[in-house]
């Protein structure tokens, strides 16, 4: 086997694993959403729509697609079953039918826009999950490898961007910022007689703004540490740890899990496809 063919085989193997992980995770997310009664058909045909000022939302609303799906339970169930079947088909054979991943992304877009419009809130938990779907659009191994690398940079960008917004807007420097965020985030829970260690810790953080501000600064530094990923892959195992530490902290302190996008952590693993460059593409893969 030539060295080039060896690379192709390695990328194909990576792709099989990554697509199984990705589409399998989407199926898992849909089951969790179903058990939490958060699918579109479980929301009882809501009547208020909020497309905000997002151009893509506007486009789909002008076509009447979210309104049709959300205000008709039969349409909502049909759409969600089709979405699930498309995901299952991608899980089983996305590499054999090139249009399947494209269809999946389009259905995902409709699902995302419809759901966020009717709950009047743009949920960011699924955004990275949605963007990762573009990685599987191509049938070419080289392009797949490059798309995966591009997505790896995007995951780093998410954290760095979040830190920069806090720094450039100046909110990271406000001493009461975290304490006030916690009050706003837990208002419902803290308006009832409080029990439980977690809520006691939240109250303690609210009453000690300097400590909670320190926590915010630590979170900003943790987000900024993803900047290293733009220059080297040497620290990716640490970034993998920070990725989950950040989300676990977010879940514990803020009550936000963003669990849908945990699958994006796959980009911190040492896939051969992530090592593929114009310098190395004629050499042997690092992992065989």
């Amino acid at each position: 086997m030539t060295e080039s063919a060896s690379w192709i085989e390695t990328i194909k193997r990576d792709r099989r694993w990554l697509s199984r992980c990705y589409y399998g995770w989407v199926i898992f997310v849909m089951l969790i959403e179903y058990s939490g009664r958060r699918l579109i058909h479980q929301l009882g045909e809501p009547v208020l729509f909020s497309p905000a000022v997002d151009n893509t939302y506007w486009l789909l609303h002008l076509m009447g697609i979210p309104q049709f799906i959300a205000s008709n339970n039969t349409a909502a169930i049909t759409f969600e079953v089709i979405f699930l079947l498309t995901t299952a088909s991608c899980f089983l054979a996305e590499e054999r039918f090139r249009m399947l991943p494209v269809l999946f992304t389009l259905e995902f877009l409709i699902y995302l826009v419809t759901k966020n419009s009717i709950v009047a809130h743009q949920e960011h938990g699924v955004d990275a999950l949605f963007l990762m779907s573009f990685v599987f659009w191509t049938g070419k191994e080289t392009r797949f490898s490059l798309l995966l690398q591009a997505f790896r940079y995007y995951v780093h960008f998410i954290f760095i961007s979040a830190a920069c917004w806090k720094l450039f807007r100046g909110s990271a420097f406000l001493p009461q910022q975290m304490s006030e965020i916690l009050k706003s985030q837990h208002l419902a829970e803290l308006s009832e007689p409080v029990a439980g260690t977690r809520l006691q810790l939240i109250i303690w953080l609210i009453n000690h703004p300097s400590i909670s501000h320190g926590l915010l600064i630590a979170a900003v530094f943790m987000q900024l540490s993803f900047l290293t990923g733009f220059f080297t892959k040497k620290f990716d195992r640490w970034l993998l740890l920070f990725f989950f530490l950040f989300y676990l902290g977010d879940w514990f302190v803020m009550g936000l899990s963003f669990y849908q996008s945990w699958v994006a952590a796959l980009v911190f693993l040492p896939w051969s496809s992530l090592q593929f460059t114009s310098v190395t593409h004629s050499a042997k893969p690092l992992v065989t």
């Binding site: 979040a162 917004w165 006030e180």
Partner: peptide, 10 residues
């Protein structure tokens, strides 16, 4: 990705 980056005044 600017969630929670606006100022939360006391």
């Amino acid at each position: 990705w600017g969630m929670y980056s606006s100022a939360y005044p006391a």
